[in-house]
Design a protein around this nucleic acid. Structure first.
Length: 211
DNA sequence: CGTTCGATGCACT
DNA sequence: GTGCATCGAACGT
């Protein structure tokens, strides 16, 4: 197994767009004993400050968005649409609300467990009469709600320290993304405001990137 | 191809 | 009561 290094606090304590760019190709890990799941980050979005209308901090500090105002290198996980959890890495500095939303992974470790979790979740959602299509491996962590499902992440992981907990992001060295496309930038997805800011980054042409 | 829409919980107004 | 940083089935073209 290649050498792996957990990203240090200083990685996150930088301008959010730099962190977002550098997170592409790193590995998001949920290190449950005997059930590790992980994937290479291939799509992210930056949400930066109270001036960003799409950022959860746009209306000021609330109990929900408090982690955004905390120190960098912690997880901000929240529940959305009554269905999905979304995971962010808090960036910048304490008092500067900003984070990077992890939107898609190329499945790496624990792919079988990911398949089970996604299939279970879909069976719960789909009508009993219809037969769900099998989920291709490239789609297991395609989309922010899908990747938290596949990795088994939920509200328990909110506020966890990405530098020292079961939830972390690792650098597996250069070469992880060999043979894949370059990083592209464009407008963020699924928001109605702040579309003029091209703060979504993804690996061009990668099959695990959301659409 | 494209668009619509239901499922579902909760923070915030 | 409203509106989501979603997903994917179902339907129209």
């Amino acid at each position: 197994m290649a050498r792996r290094r957990t990203l240090p606090r200083a990685f996150y304590a930088r301008p959010t767009l730099e962190v977002a760019a550098d997170l592409i190709g790193k590995v998001l890990v949920h290190d449950e004993p005997g059930a590790r799941t992980s994937g290479v980050i291939v799509e992210v979005e930056a949400y930066i400050g109270e001036d960003d209308p799409a950022c959860h901090a746009a209306s000021g500090r609330t109990p929900r968005n408090a982690p955004l105002y905390g120190p960098p290198g912690f997880a901000y996980v929240y529940f959305n649409y009554g269905v999905h959890y979304l995971v962010n890495a808090v960036t910048e500095a304490e008092g500067h609300p900003a984070a990077v939303l992890i939107r898609a992974l190329a499945p790496f470790e624990g792919v079988g467990l990911m398949r089970e979790r996604r299939a279970d979740a879909r069976r719960r959602l789909v009508k009993a009469a219809s037969v769900p299509r099998p989920i291709p491996d490239a789609a297991l962590c395609r989309g922010p709600g899908n990747l938290t499902c596949a990795l088994g992440l939920d509200a328990r992981h909110n506020r966890l320290d990405l530098v020292a907990s079961v939830l972390r992001i690792e650098d597996h060295g250069p070469g992880v993304l060999d043979g894949l496309g370059p990083v592209a930038w464009g407008p963020r997805i699924g928001i109605r405001v702040g579309l003029e800011r091209p703060w979504r980054a993804w690996v061009a042409g990668h099959p695990s990137v959301s659409r």
